[in-house]
Design a binder for these strands. Sequence first.
DNA 1: CGTTCATCAACAACGATTGCTAACAAGCAA
DNA 2: TTGCTTGTTAGCAATCGTTGTTGATGAACG
Lengths: 148, 148
Amino acid sequence: MVDDVKSPAELTDLFRAQGLKVTPQRQAIFRILHESEVHPSAEAVHAEVTRELPMVSLRTVYQTLNDLAAMGELVQLDLGTGAARFDPTLTPHHHLVCDGCGRVTDLEVDFPDVSVPATLHRGFTVSSTQIVFRGRCDACAAAVPVHP
Amino acid sequence: MVDDVKSPAELTDLFRAQGLKVTPQRQAIFRILHESEVHPSAEAVHAEVTRELPMVSLRTVYQTLNDLAAMGELVQLDLGTGAARFDPTLTPHHHLVCDGCGRVTDLEVDFPDVSVPATLHRGFTVSSTQIVFRGRCDACAAAVPVHP
DNA sequence: CGTTCATCAACAACGATTGCTAACAAGCAA
DNA sequence: TTGCTTGTTAGCAATCGTTGTTGATGAACG
């Protein structure tokens, strides 16, 4: 099974263990991330949060997402789509990015042959490998058959 | 040999062929790109240009870089290092990105096995594949041996 | 030469993100 | 419960990279 973001209860425990407080705002963010099937931007998470807690500021959402990313419970992606995306799927995987609508799709495939040749890495220590396939999803390809 | 950005003379011809005018500012940018061994940001190109033409605005640099990228004479990279990088190497290749200093290094290696499995692409049309290896270059690894 | 249109510099505006700070609330203990 | 301590929040300003706007300049082409 896929290693998703932890449950709200687990994240609550983790936050408390780090001496961080668990506020209603944070609980709402935990729940939204846990239920999310996509790669939401901070803005998108904020839009969801304010449906139940209308006073939550975007600032708070950023803070909590950054905390989660720093704890390794979330992966922050910068795919050149304008805003950073927060990926609740922790299993190493890759991404399809649509140049039309910006949609990001997971690709749960391992490419075991992809590594930096020893003759070329020149002291570079690789900590992660990201593969991004850019193109157009079916919907966008249909919408713009010829020119952009 | 590597397919680098065209010479200033060739770029001049290309601009004129497109009905774009070739100003001293643009010629300076052409020359700087052609001599560049790295992946300069717009800011870095601007810093170089103003050494010979102190009046050139950052706006003009962006405009020319965008024109070149639109013509396919330059590849614009967004690697999450803050600013966009402009890559004068046109041959398909991949990148090593140092999380410490942000340095971007080319990796002239082809990974023929990297493609989206037919069973998973679900209508997605891939137009380009980017592989980014993140980690630390030798200098940054030496500077920060343990914690960041 | 003169017309015309792209370009220039300067500044404002923009979107995404972060810094700042006073008011506030979570967690803990008594 | 009550109170204390400390981290958190909301709101706004500021920052960064980038682009829009504009009046003036200047190149290209006839």
